[in-house]
C-alpha cells in the first residue's frame, strides 16, 4: 500500500497525471470524432453486411494501437530514471540507508507504479472500447472482452519491467532511448511482418520479428489482442475478418504458450532487476 500511495503522489505531484489526462482526453475526443464520422457517414448505394462491424473493428484496433503507444510512452518517460536517475541525483543515498532489502524496494517501485499504469490502461481501454461498442453496435462476448482488456494492460506492465531493469544498468537518458527504440523496433518488425506476409511472407523477417518479440513482446500481445477481439464478436454468419483489417490483421497470432512465456519473461525481468540493483554500487 505504501508503494502505491507513494507512486501515486509522485505521478500526481510531478503533474504527470495532469498532462497525461489532458492529452488523453484530447486523443479520446479525436478518436470519437473520427469514429463518429466513420460510423455515421451516408452509404451511397447499399451498405454491405457487417460493414459497420468491420469499420468499428478497424477503429477499435487503431484506437487500441495508439492508446497502447500512449501508455508505453507514459511508462517510459515516467520510469526511465527510476533507479539510475535516483542514484545520479542522490535520492537513493538516504533511502538505501534504511533497513529495507533492495529487492523489496525494487519490487515496491514496480508494483506501486504498475498499479497506476494498470488503472490508467483500464480507463483508456474503456474510453476506446465503449464508444466503438455504442457507435458501431459491436457485440462482444464478456470473456473475450476481459481477455482483450488484460492483454491491453499486460503490455505496459511488461514494458515497465523492461524499463526498470534498464534503469538498473543504464543512465536515465540512455535507458529511455534504449527502451523507446526497442519498443519502436517491436512495432516496426511486427507490422513489417504483417505487410510482407500479405504478399507471401519472408522467413528471415519472421525470424527477426520473433526474436524482437521475445525481447519486446508488446506488439505480439497486440496481435493476440486483435485475435481475441475478433473471436469475441458475438455475431453468427460473420465473414472472415481476420484478414480484412489491413495492417491490423494478425498474421502470426501468438499462441497461449507465448502469453505464458511473457509471464515467465516478466518474472525473469523482475528477478534480474532485483539482482542488478542488489549488486549495484551507490557511489
Amino acid at each position: 500500500m505504501m508503494w502505491i500511495a507513494f507512486a501515486g503522489k509522485e505521478l500526481f505531484r510531478k503533474k504527470i497525471v495532469l498532462v497525461a489526462s489532458v492529452l488523453t482526453l484530447l486523443f479520446v475526443a479525436l478518436f470519437n470524432f473520427g469514429l463518429y464520422k466513420v460510423t455515421h457517414r451516408g452509404h451511397s448505394i447499399v451498405q454491405l453486411p457487417f460493414e459497420n462491424i468491420l469499420e468499428g473493428m478497424t477503429m477499435l484496433m487503431l484506437g487500441l494501437l495508439f492508446a497502447g503507444m500512449i501508455v508505453a510512452f507514459l511508462v517510459l518517460f515516467a520510469t526511465m530514471g527510476t533507479i539510475s536517475g535516483e542514484v545520479e541525483n542522490g535520492l537513493m543515498l538516504a533511502v538505501l540507508a534504511r533497513p529495507i532489502p533492495r529487492w523489496k524496494l525494487y519490487l515496491g517501485k514496480y508494483f506501486g507504479t504498475g498499479f497506476w499504469i494498470f488503472l490508467y490502461s483500464t480507463v483508456l481501454f474503456l474510453m476506446i472500447y465503449l464508444p466503438v461498442h455504442e457507435m458501431a453496435n459491436m457485440p462482444m462476448q464478456t470473456a473475450s472482452l476481459v481477455k482483450t482488456w488484460l492483454l491491453f494492460c499486460w503490455g505496459p506492465l511488461l514494458l515497465l519491467a523492461v524499463s526498470l531493469l534498464g534503469s538498473a544498468y543504464l543512465p536515465m537518458l540512455g535507458n529511455g532511448v534504449a527502451c523507446a527504440m526497442l519498443y519502436g523496433l517491436g512495432l516496426f518488425s511486427s507490422f513489417a511482418e504483417s505487410i510482407i506476409n500479405a504478399k507471401g511472407g519472408n522467413e528471415t523477417l519472421s525470424s527477426i520479428s520473433l526474436g524482437v518479440s521475445m525481447v519486446m513482446p508488446s506488439n505480439s500481445l497486440f496481435s493476440r489482442m486483435t485475435y481475441e477481439t475478433i473471436q469475441g464478436i458475438d455475431l453468427p454468419l460473420l465473414p472472415d475478418i481476420m484478414s480484412s483489417l489491413g495492417p491490423f490483421s494478425p498474421s502470426n497470432v501468438p499462441s497461449p504458450a507465448f502469453i505464458g512465456y511473457t509471464v515467465i519473461y516478466l518474472i525473469a525481468l523482475l528477478a534480474l532487476g532485483c539482482r542488478a540493483f542488489k549488486n549495484k554500487d551507490i557511489a
Partner: peptide
C-alpha cells in the same frame, strides 16, 4: 549522506 536529495515533490 553528504550529497543527497530528497523527493522535492
Amino acid at each position: 549522506p553528504e550529497l543527497f536529495r530528497f523527493q522535492e515533490w
